[in-house]
Every structure is written in C-alpha cells, then in structure tokens.
Amino acid sequence: MMKLKRLIFMSAVILIITAFYAYSREEIPTIDNIVFDHPQRSAAVFDHDDHNEKAMLEDDCSICHHVYENKKLIKDESSEDYLCSECHFLKPTPENAIPLRMAFHKQCKECHFESNKGPVLCGECHIKK
C-alpha cells in the first residue's frame, strides 16, 4: 500500500513538472507562413536577431535580403523592407524563377550545409507542436 501511494505521488510530481516545463518554455519565433495558401507544415522556427547574432550575419543583411536586377545579384544593396513573398511567388514566373517555398529552403539549407551548422531536415525547422 505504501509503495502504491508513493508511486502515485511520484507520478503526480513528474506530471506537474513536465506540464509546467511545457507551458513555461518560451515560444520560439517563426517565419510567417500565411502567404502559402493552406500551409501543410508548422511555421518554420527562426529567431531573426538571435539567429543572425549566433551565425555572425549581422554585418551583411543582403546575404538574405538581396536585390537582383535583370537576374543579376546587385552587391551591397539590400531589401530588408520587403518580404520574400513580394518578389518570390508561389509558382515560378518569368521575372522570378525561384518559387517562394524553394527560395526559403534554398537560402536556409544551403548555408546550413556549407557552415555545417543549423537545421537541414524538415522537422528541425517545421517543429510539430
């Protein structure tokens, strides 16, 4: 009987601790996926400033927020006032051959592969809640 009581008590404690941990864990910021109609995956985790600080990308915003003219990358110009979806559309178009999903995936994953750091598998960015 003592054993059973102790078991129930311990289980309750563990349950409360995990529940508390789950709720108190701060939400990781994500990239808005509203432009995709009927998004199929959870929004990708990306803590903008924290990410760029850790990855040491703060000096050059144009690595991600780039500017193109006639399909040529314009160096030293940046487009951080635009969303990616203002230039990359859901389907490839004559002005922009890189559709939006691919634009995100290529930009994020190529750099992660090159730097041997950062997520590269679906579920490492699209984390299930």
Partner: peptide
C-alpha cells in the same frame, strides 16, 4: 515516425 516527430527525429530520417 519521422513525420510525426515522435522520437529520435534525426535518426529516424
């Protein structure tokens, strides 16, 4: 199992 991210996600993939 990988799609649902139940456990050991990276190894599952």
């Amino acid at each position: 199992l990988a799609y649902h991210q139940f456990f050991a996600y990276q190894w599952m993939v």
